[in-house]
C-alpha cells in the first residue's frame, strides 16, 4: 500500500512512501507527523492516495489522537460501541465487550475515561479505533507520557491488534522502542520525507547526517579517507587512524557518526582482531551515570564520546568515573557522510 499526499494547510507537506504492516513515522516536533496522520484521517484537507476526497466519516481508518479523545460521558464499552452504530444495540455491546476483552480490559468495561489509568485509557481508545475493522489505524504518539510498564503494554496491544486481521498501522512516535518494533520507518522533517524504508535499513544506514542525528547517532567527529583496503578504508580522523566501511574515494573529507550504544568497551585480557586493535581509543571516563537499566558514560580521549550500555553489561565491566579505559569503534558501526553533504544538511 502506497501513501502519496500533498497538504498545503495548515503547513505545506509532501509525502510519498510505502506503507508496511507497522510503519513508524519519525521526526522532530513540528516535522508534520500529526498533520500527515490527520490528513489521512480526513481531518486536514489534503490531496492524494489513499482515501483522497473521501470525508472523514467514510474513510476505512481508525484514528487515535494524542489526547485519545475518549468521550468523557460514556463508559469504556460505550466508547468502544460508539463506532458500531450500524449494529443492533445488543450486538453492539457484545462486540464492544469482546474487543475490550482482547485488550485485557473486561473488568474496566463500566468505568468512565476519568476513572481509567493512562495505559488503560489508551487501550480503550485503541479498541475503539479498531472496532469498525479499519484497513489502517493512525496512531499519534500512542506511548507518549506513559511509564515503562504501560508503554510496553500499549506496544504489545498494538502488535496483537496487527497480528490478527488485515489492519495496518501508521504510528507517529518519538519512542525508539516503538519505532524499532516497526517493520518500516519514515523519517519526516519540515514537511518532507528524508528517508523511508525497512526499519533495519533506515536505522543502520541513515541516508544523511540529519537522519543519522534524528535516529540517535549522537557522536560525531570528522576525518578524511586516506587509503582504500578492499571493502574497508583507512581514515585519518580527529581520533587517530581508523578503519571504516565506505565506498568514498581517497581524499574525501567525511563526517563520522556513531551511536552511543555502539561504542564498545574493551574487556582487558581479550585478544582483539587487527582491525579492532587499529580502531581502539584510550581515554578517561569522565562521568558514569546509572539510569535504571541503562548506564551512560562520557569518554574523554583524543575525542569526546558518549557511551550507553545495558546495566548487565556494565555489571561485568565495573565502570567508575575517572578510570582509564579502552574503547573499540567497530568499522561497521561508523556511518560516514562526505563533508559537503554534512555541511549542506546541518545548516
Amino acid at each position: 500500500m502506497e501513501v502519496r499526499y500533498r497538504i498545503t494547510r495548515p503547513y505545506p507537506l509532501e509525502a510519498a512512501f510505502e506503507l508496511g504492516r507497522f510503519t513508524a513515522l519519525l521526526g522532530p516536533s513540528g516535522a508534520g507527523k500529526t498533520t500527515l496522520i490527520r490528513a489521512l484521517a480526513g481531518l486536514v484537507p489534503g490531496r492524494g492516495t489513499p482515501y483522497g476526497g473521501l470525508p472523514a466519516e467514510r474513510r476505512p481508518v481508525g484514528y487515535l489522537p494524542q489526547n485519545l479523545a475518549l468521550f468523557p460521558h460514556l463508559n469504556a464499552w460505550q466508547n468502544v460501541a460508539f463506532p458500531l452504530a450500524h449494529l443492533p444495540p445488543g450486538e453492539r455491546k457484545e462486540r464492544a465487550l469482546a474487543l475490550l476483552g482482547r485488550f485485557g480490559l473486561s473488568e474496566k468495561a463500566d468505568r468512565r475515561p476519568a476513572e481509567l489509568s493512562g495505559g488503560e485509557a489508551r487501550r480503550v481508545a485503541l479498541a475503539r479505533a479498531l472496532a469498525r475493522e479499519p484497513e489502517l489505524i493512525l496512531l499519534d504518539e500512542p506511548t507518549a507520557g506513559l511509564d515503562r510498564p504501560n508503554r510496553s503494554q500499549v506496544l504489545r496491544a498494538i502488535l496483537a491488534a496487527l497480528s490478527s486481521g488485515n489492519v495496518r498501522a501508521l504510528v507517529a512516535t518519538h519512542d525508539p522502542e516503538l519505532a524499532q518494533a516497526a517493520d518500516r520507518v519514515v523519517v519526516l522533517e519540515r514537511g518532507k520525507v528524508l528517508q523511508e524504508g525497512p526499519s533495519d535499513r533506515v536505522f543502520n544506514h541513515p541516508a544523511s547526517p540529519r537522519v543519522a542525528q534524528l535516529l540517535g547517532y549522537e557522536n560525531r567527529f570528522s576525518g578524511r579517507v586516506v587509503q582504500r583496503e578492499g571493502e574497508l578504508a583507512l581514515l585519518a580522523t580527529e581520533a587517530g587512524r581508523l578503519y571504516a566501511k565506505t565506498e568514498l574515494p581517497v581524499g574525501t573529507r567525511v563526517g563520522i557518526f556513531l551511536r552511543p550504544e555502539e561504542v564498545l568497551i574493551v574487556r582487558e585480557g581479550r585478544p582483539l582482531s587487527p582491525v579492532d586493535a587499529q580502531n581502539t581509543l584510550v581515554g578517561r571516563l569522565r562521568c558514569v551515570r546509572r539510569m535504571g537499566p541503562v548506564v551512560e558514560a562520557e569518554f574523554q580521549g583524543r575525542i569526546e564520546l558518549l557511551l550507553r550500555l545495558p546495566r548487565h553489561v556494565e555489571d561485568r565491566l565495573g565502570l567508575a568515573t575517572g578510570e582509564i579505559r579502552r574503547v573499540v569503534l567497530k568499522p561497521r558501526y561508523l556511518q560516514l557522510f562526505s563533508e559537503e553533504e554534512d555541511s549542506f544538511s546541518s545548516e
Binding site: 484521517a41 466519516e57 484514528y63 489522537p65 479523545a69 460508539f82 463506532p83 452504530a85 479505533a129
Partner: peptide, 27 residues
C-alpha cells in the same frame, strides 16, 4: 468542548446529527 472529540467522532463514522445528539449535547 474538546474539538478532538468531534473530530474523532467523525473518524468513527458519526455524521453531524449523531455528533450533535451523542457528543455535543450530552456534554
Amino acid at each position: 468542548l474538546d474539538p478532538a472529540l468531534l473530530e474523532t467522532a467523525r473518524t468513527l463514522g458519526a455524521g453531524p446529527g449523531r455528533r450533535l445528539r451523542e457528543v455535543v449535547l450530552p456534554l
